[in-house]
Nucleic acid binder design. Structure first.
Lengths: 109, 109
DNA sequence: GCATATATGTAAGTAATTTAGGTATGATAA
DNA sequence: TTATCATACCTAAATTACTTACATATATGC
């Protein structure tokens, strides 16, 4: 079966970077936020989320520190680095470029 | 390195199905057509193209027969099956759904 | 006779997911 | 009080699509 898929492959980094570009958030909250904002269309599973966060941190696009949530629990908060902001810009441009191109094919073919 | 990527992962089937939904085409022509229509943004390499065509044929969404091209060469022409038309419809809907959702995250976050 | 564009294909490697686990704590209900 | 749920972190195996790099063959133009 072709997977129903809750994500378009390769867009998760963009979604995460964009989400924490507003304000720092911990992983769980990032996933919730993406789901909410997308009207429950995009589902970020934990198996995709945490590896992505570690990947992004390793590349220096986000950084983390432990903080208390509003509900009084320890959680790892992630924020954009300067390099991350640049990367976000790149990924936004790339997404526009490619999704527009797909739109062209769909409408023109 | 994050790949520059000439395709959004998972969209190639959609692009192929849509392209031959206008009229049957052989593999090489499909790739050329996608590239042209997308203003050279989307590049379908042969290593992605042929396995995708075989995959789609195996799933019964396209069928093929050898014909002569306008340039007088033998080539394998692919056309949509009835099941393929249904699949194309599904994939179009899925693309709209997911790309809109990403748009929401980008604009709202 | 040789290079180039057309045309088909395969194979190894890579990377992002899915699926399926596991651990731990604070809050809520029985 | 103890059981359960939502929150919060994590990893590993498997899947899959794609990239990169080959290999082959024919028609056309020089």
């Amino acid at each position: 079966m072709s997977r129903p898929s809750d994500l378009i492959q390769g867009t998760l980094d963009l979604l995460i970077l964009r989400t924490i570009s507003i304000e720092p958030k911990h992983g769980w909250a990032i996933a919730k936020r993406i789901q909410q904002v997308s009207d429950d269309v995009l589902q970020v599973t934990q198996g995709a989320l945490y590896p992505a966060l570690h990947r992004l941190e390793q590349q220096g696009w986000i950084s983390s520190n432990w903080q208390l949530t509003d509900t009084g629990r320890e959680a790892k908060f992630y924020r954009l680095t300067k390099a991350g902001a640049a990367q976000l810009k790149k990924e936004l441009a790339q997404w526009e470029r490619l999704s527009n191109a797909i739109g062209l094919v769909i409408r023109t073919a």
